[in-house]
Design a protein around this nucleic acid. Sequence first.
DNA 1: TTGTAGGCGTTATCAC
DNA 2: GTGATAACGCCTACAA
Lengths: 368, 368
Amino acid sequence: MLPAVGRVTLAEVARRAGVSQTTASFVLAGRREEMRISAQVEARVRQAARETGYRPNVVSRSLRTGTTQTIGFLSDTVATTPFAGHLIWGALDAAREHEHLLLIGETEGDPELEKELVEAMRDRQVEGIVFASMYTRWVSVPKGLLDGPSVLLNALPTRPCPIAAVVPDELEAGRAAARVLLRSGHTSGIYVVGVGARPGQVPKGVVAAVERLAGIREVLSGAGVELAGGALLRDWQPQAGYVAALGLLKRKPEPRAFICFNDRLSVGTYQALQDTGRKVGKDVSVVSFDDEPVASWLRPQLTSLAIPHYELGRKAVEVLLSKPGPVPEGTVHRIPMPLRERESICPVEATRKHPLAGWRGPRGPLRG
Amino acid sequence: MLPAVGRVTLAEVARRAGVSQTTASFVLAGRREEMRISAQVEARVRQAARETGYRPNVVSRSLRTGTTQTIGFLSDTVATTPFAGHLIWGALDAAREHEHLLLIGETEGDPELEKELVEAMRDRQVEGIVFASMYTRWVSVPKGLLDGPSVLLNALPTRPCPIAAVVPDELEAGRAAARVLLRSGHTSGIYVVGVGARPGQVPKGVVAAVERLAGIREVLSGAGVELAGGALLRDWQPQAGYVAALGLLKRKPEPRAFICFNDRLSVGTYQALQDTGRKVGKDVSVVSFDDEPVASWLRPQLTSLAIPHYELGRKAVEVLLSKPGPVPEGTVHRIPMPLRERESICPVEATRKHPLAGWRGPRGPLRG
DNA sequence: TTGTAGGCGTTATCAC
DNA sequence: GTGATAACGCCTACAA
């Protein structure tokens, strides 16, 4: 029944140092000066602590002070997306900088489980909860989350609520993708893979789809360019991308550029391009999102807008730990998505200054 | 200074129910019968608890009982390998089945950090610590890990110590890889990518390399077959695999099968094969290890021996929670690595019964 | 400058 | 059957 067998308590340290528990406590809390405790006594206490290998029992301290130095990290799934670990990694790093540890839980999107785990964490007196999604989406804030400090990570609340959210800046990423193509001279034959060409033609509930498309359309139309078409896909996996790309390749105007809404779709698109005898980065440009590891494994290497998982995780914890109070409804922190420029974009013609200048149709001078 | 603002305590419940705290405690602990408390009183207590939304404070309970219902999960890195999340996932599931939560930490392989985090976890009175590595390797058990219950996950201790280990059965996986090739008629021109053909020609410290190679050689030599060669690589990434495979393709006997020591090497090998005009699954077989997602994205899909991350994570927690005591030195639980048969193996000739029967040289009848 | 004592919310021992 | 009362280990107001 003895808890933590073998651990030495503060009382024991005090006894060995020949002082009261209070004195020992003050010394070890670094409040010697403040409490005007003699240096001699301090030395004795510290020595006793060292000799016995004393470590404060955080549980009892928590009970007394109400601060557990622990925060909860609750996500829908920690497993399925390869780079999701970086979310946790960032959170972990930020937490450690504040001398906190992370309690994690996985909800699998089950509201019942969500509630249960939120409670299990609050029962353990966590100082706050990060509620994370592995891909950016709208979530209904689970019961009990609002009972204490919390922050949404990679997720937006379906209904306005007084809790901050941290998400990638998908809108700006969409703009960046469009700019990459414009910069390299593309003005027609641009197709999107994963969503349709019109607003609203997106898989349900996927924030990234909506915002990326909006960013793309905004920049494109700003340059007087229109999307030639697209393929709305619910399943953003290579196989679906392959089939979709194959279909788009039969359309007119002939595709000169694909904006794939994630790297897996790009994998399929590459295969379709290869099967139809086209060369990525020469005949056709591909720009993608997410920057999973596979992006740099592909040949030619894929240009992609990276999801800043690590930074997202960090930021969430920092927001949580900095202002534990309620926050104006709709507070959203957007983290930039860095552009990783690689080899999947057709080279810019040196003399081409304006997006439209020098354009000579779908089969330009680059391919003779 | 009030901890957990707004939480109702047991005392409050007892007051509302008009009973003593003791009685309330017994009722809510389900010990009514044992304590011979009237059903009426029980009802009153339960109602009060329900009305107030009472939840026991786990921290104070922990202080009293010494059981925190929390275990620590410490790993070298949670982020870099895509499927590592499944380790955590398995651990999480097993933990939840025992009503435990997981406290996680990342050491980045830094011994100082390891020690710190082990202590931080023990300070929080975790009931045990899973010390995990993201790829199977030998680790020196960090200071303090042996001070309480613990288990090694995906790791083996460099020196014998009284702590159980849970690892994938790499030896058997090596055997399985070899059997796959023998079964399909390969008896020469078999090359390994990632390690050399001889025992000991492996990257330092990589358990998987040693054991997989041993398993392969055992089965092969049992069938009177020799490895034709290999390429010892320290960096098991696609680029290295590409270069290595290109090199091996110039060797004699001409390669008919590659055993790639992970899927990333297979990605590079596929590219080399393609660049030299060979077809995987027709001219050349490829069998691989790990079964990362990319294995099924490749065309043709890659046959690979999967690392059972989920099962590993589960098992570790189960071992930890089932026997919290010291364990005979050298206790190792080996989890089978399932073979995922896909399309990268040359089809077996229907009439071929024995591995050696019907073999007609490196360019057999399959390719005319 | 140091020590005494009370309390954080539970659980558990023992009287009544 | 029920209710004081004493821990668990730590922090801190207050007394000395």
